[in-house]
Every structure is written in C-alpha cells, then in structure tokens.
Design a protein around this nucleic acid. Structure first.
Lengths: 145, 145, 145, 145
DNA sequence: GTGGTCTAGACCACC
DNA sequence: GTGGTCTAGACCACG
C-alpha cells in the first residue's frame, strides 16, 4: 500500500505532511516554482480528509514556504531552499541535543549513541524518508500532466 | 524559584515527571526503597495541578517502578534499575532513529549528525540532567523530614 | 516583460483589471469612445487566462462602463467619466474608512495617519498609477492597429 | 445584539478574530499574560463554529502572539506588545499607502482624503473598534471568573 | 473544564 | 479544475 502517512503515529497527520514538504525542499527534492499535488489529489493518495492536507498547505504558506495562485494551485516559494534547510537543521539540531542529553542522563555511553545513529542512517524504512519522495514525485507528475 | 517542569513545552507535564523519575532511576540518582515526595509536596514545588503528579505516580506504579504504602508514601520498587534502564534505552533508541531519519531526509550528512551528537554529549545544560536531580533531592529530603 | 497584473496579490486578477480600467476612466487616461484591447490581446500581454479578462470586461459592461460592438471590439461608454469617478470615490471612501478605523483601533493617533497619507500622496510608485497607463496605452495602440 | 463578528463581510470570520486580538494587543486592551476567552465561550458569544475560533487562535499562536497551556487555555505571549504594534502599523501603513495611491490615481485631491480620514477617525461604528473591546472584556471576565 | 485533531460535507470565488 | 471558508460532530489528551 502506498499511503505515505502513518495515522497511528502520535505526530499529527498534517504535521507529517508539513515535515515531508520541508524536508523535501531542504534536500532539493522539491525546488522553487514546483507545483505541489492538489489538495484533493494528495488527500486521495494519502487517504486523509482534504481539510487535513489544506491545513498543512496553509501552515506552510504562513511560514512562507509556499504560495497559492487562486484557481491554479500551490507552488514552492522562491528562494526558500536556504531558509528551509536552516529551519530543518535547527530543528534537527535541537532534537538531537535533547535525545543525546537524555541518553547521557540515562548513563548511555557516547559510543553507543553514535553506533545507533550510524545504523539508523543506513536504513530506509522510516517515516521521513519515503514520503517526501512520494510527494516530490507527485509534484513532478502534476507539473507534467 | 526552581521549577523543574517546563509548562511551555509540548511534552505533557505528567510525561515530563515520569521521565524525570525514570532517568533518575536509570542513572542511579534514585535507588530501590527511596521515598518520593508526596503528591501534594511535589505539586506545590513544581507549581502544577496535584492531579498531574498523581497521574504520573499512578502510571509509574502501573509500570512497576513505584509502589505505594498507604499512609506512608510512594517508594521506588526493588530491582527496577535494570528494567528502567532498558525502558530508557528503548525510548532513546527510538527517538534517535527518528531524528537521524529526519536528518538524513533533510540531506544532512552522517558526519554532521555525529558531530552534533558529540558536542551535545560534552555539554551540561539540558532538561534531563538538572530536573531528575531536583526530584531526587526532594525525595531525599522527604525521606528525611 | 511588463505585466500589469500582480498574480501574487490576494486581490483577484479580474478585479485588478476592472480597477485599472475604472481608475483610468476616472482620471481621464481613458475617455468615451476609446477602444480597449481585445480579450485575447490583453490576456496575452498580462499573461493571464482569457476567461479572466473576459470576466472583467463583462463586469464592466454590466456596470455600464463599456459596450461591445460585435466584430469590432470593446469601447468606453459615453458619459461614464462622472459615474466612474463616483464609483472610485465611493470605493476609496469605504476603504479609507476601514483602514482609519483599524488604525484608531490599534491606537495610532490621527496625526500619524494624516502624515502617512501626505507622504503616500507625494510618491509615484504605487499599483494604480502605472497599470492603468499600461492598459490605456494598449487601448490607444489597438485603436491605431 | 452582541455578535462581534460580521459574517456578511468579505473578510473571513477567523481573520476578523485575528485582527481583533492583534489590535487589542497593539492598543493595550490586552496585555501579556491575559487569558483569552475559551474557544467554546467565544464561539458561543460570536455565534460561530468553535473550529473557526480555534483556527484564529492557532494562527495567532503560530505568529507568536499567543501560547497554549494544555487543558488550561490560551494566553497572550510575553513581550508582544511592541512586535504586535509594529505589525499592525506596518499593515496599516501599507494599506493606507494603497488607498491613498488609488485616490490620487482617481484624481482625488489630498485635502479630500485627509477630510475623510478625519471624519472616519471620529466615528465609533466600524468593524474594528467595538469587537476588540468585546474580546478584551471577555478576557478580563474569564480571568476573574 | 481546556485545546487538538480529524472527518464529512457544504458553499464560495477564481481561473 | 483549483483553494478558501465554514459547519457539525466526533474522539482524544491534558489538568
């Protein structure tokens, strides 16, 4: 099944979508001017309510990552790659600090932490790796179609 | 005033308390038989609703980390260090996987991740180092008082 | 390229076109009998959907500002300068009321408001000065061509 | 009737609420730490759907003007007066520029503009003057109650 | 009691 | 076709 969203996750569906888009921009899978899949299309693919997708898109627009052209669709704002990468890195850095601090506080040695990180980096199967690709390819498709 | 809880955090207050206790046990700052501060005392110190503290204690009791002696108070269960350490490690491993996956998805190279982790490990200032101590010392105090 | 329309604006494109024409008439840059550019020509120049231009022209015709001569094109109606000026003034008065009310509600003193208005009046660079000229000159051109 | 919201307006209800709050903060009718009326309470008073109020509150939180304490309610963020005032002034300045430019473009003399502004400033009856007060007093009431 | 999230379905404006 | 807005109602977590 190709549903890119984990409804059992404790992170909200709309937040997952937002993250997907942000990471896709940060890593260059989506670039300025690219059109995103329409609200309806993405909602059908992800099997979620259109409002949920719309909420994610709207948030991203408020953040300045997207813009809407009435009746046309939603597009990646110009010059957001850098800003987006900074945001993502800041977020990741902060969360990484948190978890490392927790690990140290629980008495876990640094080498174990690095070991886990290495192994995690090798794997494909995790929430934030497949989905942005899925969204990115949807975007490419609708740009073509 | 030294409030050990971050009410602005998106992590639920009761969960923060539970984590504090678990990390304190895992790292040996709290050991079997130690008495925890009473619900009322801790709630006053942390400036949170007593129900919140009560829920945390109840959860920890369900997990088998605490036991209650009527009229006496709440105590650390025997032989929980190992179990608690496992819990913490599992939690940390899971969160570490998440954030590493995000980092990779955002295009961050593995070396950067390890670098950040190293630096974070050196630092002292983080949420889970001071707070468990605070609770641990409260525990020592109420054991004495 | 000189696009007279701001597709990123939250003002609908067709409304921008209608405003451009109305202001051009009110200020005398377009006068009775002048021929407007064809729907197709204007849509190409502005790089917008022909339906959008057509809707603007239709609306303006309903308002009695334009008339269409089959096979000939679209022209400014006779004796509309006065009516058009009234429309514009009404619109401006209403919007001015709104923004002044907002300013007062935000605690901005009247003198500041007047100050800003004075300064804004001195300037050249604003949406509704250049664009109607662009349309007006298109009109002149197509009248000639 | 005490419905503070104009559902016939072309500006969205949630946007009206957002504006009310912003102007109330900018003018000092709401200050840091004040609790806002609950989503349900305000939705009943304004006779709109709770989701609409929630959306406005959420947007304001994203903008950094509010913060939420889980299970407790929504509060004005610290030190936003200045920031909020700047936002409001910028918004008003920009809109004022627009409308003045329009007025000039339509041939309206500066003195007429100032005259209208003066008169508008004297009046009470406009969307953005009563409502923030209504919200502000609701906030005060729920703080007391 | 509080807000957060999601669904289902409606209507609108724009292109 | 596109997104924007609003409603009604549900369930959840938190305090």
């Amino acid at each position: 099944m190709l549903s890119s969203v984990d409804i059992t996750s404790n992170v909200a569906v709309y937040a997952q979508i937002e993250n997907h888009v942000q990471f896709a921009i940060a890593s260059g899978r989506l670039v300025s001017g690219d059109q995103l899949p329409s609200v309806r299309e993405l909602s059908e693919r992800l099997n979620v309510n259109p409002n949920t997708v719309a909420k994610a898109y709207r948030d991203l627009e408020v953040m300045g990552l997207l813009y809407t052209r009435r009746g046309m669709g939603v597009f990646i704002e110009k010059g957001v790659e850098q800003k987006c990468r900074e945001n993502c890195y800041k977020r990741i850095g902060s969360r990484l600090h948190e978890v490392v601090a927790e690990a140290r506080s629980a008495g876990m040695p640094l080498d174990d932490i690095i070991d886990i990180a290495r192994k995690a980096y090798e794997l494909d199967s995790d929430p934030y790796v497949e989905t942005p690709n899925a969204i990115a390819s949807l975007a490419k498709q609708s740009a073509k179609g």
